[in-house]
Amino acid sequence: MVWIRGIDEIPISLSYKNAITVEKVGLATNALFNLDKGDSLGLRGPLGNKFKILEGSTVLLIGGGIGLAPLLYLADVLKDNGTNITTLIGSRNKESLFFDDELKKVSKVFLSTDDGSFGTKGSVLDLLKNSIKDLDVYDMVYVCGPDRMIRALLDLFDKKNILEKTQFSVSRIIKCGLGICGSCSIDPKGLRVCRDGPVFYGTEIIDSEIGIYMRDHAGVRCRL
């Protein structure tokens, strides 16, 4: 958890060994952009679980939007383990594309943008269907991105019967970060994203609320 003093505390994953990468989306993230060199932050963590890593394997990383940030750190760790990595990057447009150069250094990269301004036009799901012929060659698929993307991939991997070889980093409203308050619980098992997650195997969340609804800060369910 990253604490911007006097503003709020928000959950953020590492994008390098000692760095975070942030998208301006609200009060707290905007405040982060207003900090000066030499200013400090409060940090609490690491919290929750982590990606499970197989030594010397062949893996596929799929990242959408800011979900790419933790995948870069994962790719760096996997590279040191002698892993053969392919990465799919989904972005809104050319301007919001980031980390593609960094990921090209450690993996084979395929790109898509929603508006076709760079790489293949379409969603990351289209990109997957067009660029990856055989999903069975991968020992593990790692995913981080928006709920809709996760749901589309869950359903696809379910059809292909490879859910047990997929790991998803999931996002919810996280308040306490220690698995006590329950604000990040996902239905129907009551899994706590901050403590039981944020990384779940596809088998654990295929029947979950992810991609269908999520709760806001007050706990009201919002359909996606």
Binding site: G179, I180, C181, G182, S183, S185, I186, D187, P188, K189, G190, R192, R215, G219
Partner: peptide, 14 residues
């Protein structure tokens, strides 16, 4: 109260 009690499924789990 206040511990993992904000959703039906979380209450079921406990």
């Amino acid at each position: 109260s206040g511990i993992l009690g904000s959703t039906g499924s979380s209450l079921n789990r406990i």
